[in-house]
């Protein structure tokens, strides 16, 4: 067993994991945050996407021990204390999800995109989520949601990382 330290959604966690444990399983089982979903375990669907030190990562393709010392953001950490993040609100308003299973990956990918590119064009949005599969929406409403979030965040003048 290996003892690792993670800062998950701003809270320091120390967990013991087997060397072969995937980050997604550590987040779900050892940290106890089940909002991150397993869809394929082959790095293809993106449902397990989390932010590791601010970068979107498919957490099924990383060992937990590789993330030792990292800051992790999961879907549970996207909202502020008492209100949804603009990206979350936009996904709700624009029907950017149906069953919600791919949603953690979509939200965190969108959040990372807007953190580094506050005014992405359509190509950049498509490119950002091209690694995330959704079987319900056909993607149109997801693209609309991200565009809507970008527009609102620009209008409110808040940089993305402070909007939460």
């Amino acid at each position: 067993m290996n003892r690792i330290r993670l800062v998950v959604n701003g809270r320091e966690r120390e967990i013991e994991v087997e060397a072969c444990k995937l980050l997604v399983h550590a987040v779900r089982e050892d940290v106890g945050l089940t909002g991150t979903h397993v869809g394929c375990l082959t790095g293809d669907c993106g449902a397990c996407t989390v932010l590791v030190d601010g970068a979107s990562v498919k957490s099924c393709s990383v060992l937990a021990v590789q993330a030792d010392g990292a800051e992790i953001t999961t879907i549970e950490g996207v909202a502020g204390d008492d209100e949804l993040h603009p990206v979350q609100r936009a996904f709700w308003d624009e029907f950017g999800f149906q069953c919600g299973y791919c949603l953690p990956g979509m939200l965190l990918t969108a959040r990372e995109l807007l953190d580094r590119m506050p005014d992405p064009d359509d190509d950049a949005i498509v490119q950002a989520i091209n690694g995330n599969l959704c079987r319900c929406t056909g993607y149109g409403s997801i693209l609309r949601s991200i565009r809507c979030a970008a527009t609102r965040m620009a209008a409110s003048g808040e940089p993305a990382e402070e909007a939460s």
Partner: peptide
């Protein structure tokens, strides 16, 4: 009316309880 999905708050914040949860 295009009423938003009732399960939005749960799903958007990772509180939707799927089977493996």
């Amino acid at each position: 009316s295009p009423v938003r999905k009732a399960d939005g708050p749960a799903l958007l914040t990772g509180r939707g309880r799927f089977l493996d949860d």
